[in-house]
């Protein structure tokens, strides 16, 4: 079982993701976007500022050839996880619905947030309802047309919401103005997850939380069933 960690020009959380996965005993390989994506059981698209966020965050990376291979793996049911810039790349690739755009207050937000698990997905098969993870982004406001939002709820595609200490998705707990406090969204089949928070930045005690590990562990368990 091997996980590909994609690298584009400007990716910068690739090594952090790799370390977090290696800590959990997963076999990983860093894959440069010009290489062939072959022989992998899952993919993680890490955070960063691919292509300087030119045009729109994730827009350029989404149009690279390797993303076509990611699409094929997604169609095969393999798990694909996009974190932060990786989430933006997945939405720009139309692999998940909606889009992540400029924060309500147009500045970079870097802080710890509480996330309530909403939908079921191969990335969230752990027991805890709330996880603490950091966010670090300027374009993380989830935008989705109302009709599509309705479908997301009907199809259980809203995976995490930003919540307060009491687990409520209040406006003060919403760090970027995302529609309905949505922090992570999946495709219809649930094997592609786009999330703005960084699980790899909460993967060791030294970092302040190990809550992120449950997401990677869920992904690894799911791959073992395939």
């Amino acid at each position: 079982m091997k996980i590909a960690i994609l690298r584009f020009g400007g990716s910068n959380c690739d090594l952090d993701v790799q370390k977090a996965l290696n800590n959990l005993g997963a076999e990983t390989e860093l894959v440069w976007y010009k290489e062939v994506l072959e022989g992998f059981d899952g993919v993680i698209i890490p955070g960063g500022f691919s292509y300087g966020d030119y045009l729109r965050a994730g827009a350029i990376a989404a149009r690279t050839k390797i993303m076509q291979s990611v699409r094929e793996m997604a169609e095969d049911g393999k798990p694909i996880l996009g974190i932060c810039n990786g989430a933006q790349i997945l939405s720009e690739s139309h692999l998940v619905p909606g889009t992540f755009t400029l924060n309500q207050y147009p500045k970079f937000v870097c802080k710890w947030v509480k996330l309530l698990k909403i939908g079921r997905s191969p990335f969230t098969t752990f027991s805890s309802e709330i996880v603490n993870l950091p966010i670090a982004h300027k374009e993380g406001r989830f935008v989705v047309p109302s009709q599509l939002l309705k479908e997301l709820y009907e199809n259980d595609q809203v995976v995490f919401k930003y919540v307060d200490d009491n687990g409520r998705p209040t406006s003060s707990a919403n760090p970027n103005g995302s529609r309905d406090n949505i922090a992570a969204v999946s495709n219809l089949e649930k094997n592609v997850l786009a999330m703005m928070p960084h699980p790899e930045r909460a993967s060791e005690k030294l970092l302040g939380s190990v809550d992120g590990n449950v997401i990677f562990e869920s992904m690894i368990s799911y791959m073992n069933t395939l």
Binding site: L55, R56, A59, R63, E92, G98, T99, T101, V143, V144
Partner: peptide, 9 residues
């Protein structure tokens, strides 16, 4: 359609 605009926004 393919790059310059994002149809959602």
């Amino acid at each position: 359609r393919r790059l310059l605009a994002n149809p959602i926004i």
